[in-house]
Write a protein that binds this DNA or RNA. Structure first.
Lengths: 390, 390
DNA sequence: CTGAAAGCGCTAACAC
DNA sequence: GTGTTAGCGCTTTCAG
């Protein structure tokens, strides 16, 4: 019963090498079953081996292995035992031929592996493993040709679905329709409302940031942020205005500085703004800006948060925690976004697409630059093990 | 000749949904050929469709599509034309069944998607696309169970090879031998000398850093770095010592501060060290440390580089460029490392493994904190489009 | 130069 | 309960 697998006495390291020296017929039928091992080449067990050794038919072996159909418990057990002994690994490529499911989803990034995609990746992968699905990675950079190419590759591999990520939440031109798999846009969004997109609620993030400054007691709040051409920038402003309005305050245009999302820009803007010593709170459009602002305030001898409180955006721990003092920041919960995106895609694959754009709320990571305690559930939960941390 | 594909009049969005309502026999044979499109479900063309429409046999169609064998040029052309018209996409899972190659390689990271893996990813992917191979992503975190699980998954998917990355260059316990595919360790290394590893030459990096400080005219150089338990830390020290020795100088133990790779640690160490005002150069073990050091010097009124020159490590543009002044830094060329790792793996897949540990030289990104001109070819080439930049 | 036939590893419909 | 049979889409002999 525990009949060992044949171990062919050719010493070599790869299937390819074997393929080259193999006589036409004999080894050919074994072509994709070669394993390397210390003893040389070993042949991977197929379901036929299992069936033979377990003394059942191939069909029964299949059912036994997949827990399908009805059969005597001891038969099933025997099949499973044999499979374990022979170190059987069902060839998923073969099974997908008949089932039509590959349990593979593609991830197409238009952003390389910049700042936003990696945290997403972690969430996506975690959600997919539940369904034993795997992730196929495609980086289209910002190149339409590459993108087209990858879509072909993904189609050729018959992925069950696709997640698209990008560098901004702005609606991007949709992928070609009539793709042979459902698509879900994560972080980035599609301009076609029929598509499914899951992204960040930047309005909410802006609201959280401003409200935190208000709680800290700030009354004269200014905003230093990125280019106005970026949707997220405009939405965060809208959110901040809503928070201020709730207290009867305003964020007029002349108190907003648009620029780059960089430390340098933050530093320069802060120097300029702080000639007005009545400012008591700054909402920074990114942690990089926040970092530059903090440095500028430090240089000017302005105390944080006593004189001016600061809230950043992104909760990029590495940066926010190293700021002096540590930077309170809005977290976009990208890990969770990835997770939910993958779950939504799995539902779409199961025939329940969820078209339209959905936005996920942000949370707040309270730190010393604006330490007012957060009493409700918007506090940042550390469910993001994948943020590069220090 | 341009006979259109049948377009079944069932409106629905996914194969699954079709599968559910499909009568047993008829649609069953079409199970994995459903496509979505505006008109409803469309059936993907198979090689049989091509053959039929082109008026040849399946075998001929196959040869024609793959450019194999001999055949009349016009026959081949006809086949290709039909394939294009029918938007034919060969099912790679099916072909891998017969060829034994999946043109898929796995990437197993033990580091999540932290600091070092993403730049690597870009290089790996670029090298793989040349071979039309795809990347299957597996994040084992630091969990042995997950790792074991993923190895099974990869085996079940019959990947052609595997790249393993990790968070440090220290030799890690090898994967189980007798894996059914060749393995290449990138950045991380295997403690088994039979395995193939490609990593960074930290000794060279340390040498570059110290030599740059020497060129700047520094004579009393100190080193602030991470924990001594990290191999890279020790190797960089060895390299720095070699550079200093070339000038008859030394880097005695008491001028080395071990700590964490953080800004905070760099800041504190610099404050302590600079009570000794004869120090004129600091080699920082990471850009984070460098950043902290620069801030400390700034606070002490010490000018960079006039009073003290600074060289960092990692060339993490985001950090190094934002330092005041911008931080000169050693680049580990991770994009290139990824590229070369993938190329080496492809050779291993082709039967030419390259066992042992190979180390790739570093380069130097010269910036204002230590601006001595670099005359030779060790200057940092900007072939790393994937470093998150600003 | 082309095609018929066999087979890759696995699943599923249907008899027995 | 279990086995027989017929595929999935593609490649590869090998005979014509």
């Amino acid at each position: 019963m525990s009949m060992p697998l044949a171990s062919i006495a050719i010493r070599c390291r790869t299937r390819q090498a074997v393929g080259l020296r193999s006589p036409p017929r004999f080894l050919n039928s074994l072509r994709n079953r070669f394993f390397n091992s210390l003893e040389g080449v070993v042949v991977a067990a197929t379901i036929r081996d299992i069936a033979r050794v377990a003394g059942v038919s191939v069909a029964t072996a299949s059912k036994g292995l997949n827990g399908k159909g009805r059969m005597r418990p001891e038969t099933r057990q025997r099949i499973l035992d044999v499979a374990r002994q022979l170190d059987f690994r069902p060839n998923r490529n073969a099974s997908s031929l008949t089932t039509g499911r590959t349990y593979t989803v593609g991830l197409l990034t238009r952003d390389g592996y910049g700042r936003f995609t990696p945290p997403l990746l972690g969430g996506v992968e975690d959600a997919l493993t539940v369904d034993t699905a795997s992730l196929l990675l495609c980086d289209a950079r910002r190149d339409a040709v590459r993108e087209r190419h990858y879509l072909d590759v993904l189609a050729a591999r018959r992925v069950d679905g696709l997640i698209v990520t990008g560098r901004a939440t702005d609606p991007a031109p949709p992928l070609p329709r009539s793709l042979p798999f459902p698509v879900l846009h994560a972080y980035t969004t599609s301009s076609d409302p029929e598509d499914s997109s899951l992204t960040v609620d930047d309005e909410h993030g802006g609201w959280l940031a401003a409200r935190q400054l208000l709680r800290q007691g700030c009354r004269r709040i200014v905003h230093i942020t990125g280019p106005a051409s970026v949707l997220a920038v405009r939405e965060r402003i809208a959110g901040a205005r809503r928070a201020l309005a709730e207290e009867g305050l305003e964020l007029p245009d002349h108190l907003i500085t648009y620029g780059a999302f960089t430390e340098r820009a933050g530093f320069a803007a802060a120097q300029r703004l702080l000639t007005d010593r009545t400012v008591d709170g700054i909402f920074c459009g990114s942690d990089q800006i926040g970092r530059g602002v903090a440095d500028a305030l430090g240089a000017l001898g302005i105390r944080i948060p006593q004189d001016v409180a600061l809230v950043g955006f992104d909760n990029w721990t590495l940066l926010a925690a190293a700021t002096r003092p540590p930077l309170c920041s809005v977290d976009m919960n990208l890990y969770r976004l990835g997770r939910l995106a993958a779950e939504s895609l799995l539902r779409a694959i199961d025939g329940h697409p969820e078209p339209g754009v959905r936005r996920l709320p942000c949370s707040l990571a309270v730190r010393a630059s604006c330490p007012a305690p957060v009493t409700d559930s918007t506090a940042w939960q550390d469910d993001n093990p994948l943020v590069p941390d220090a």
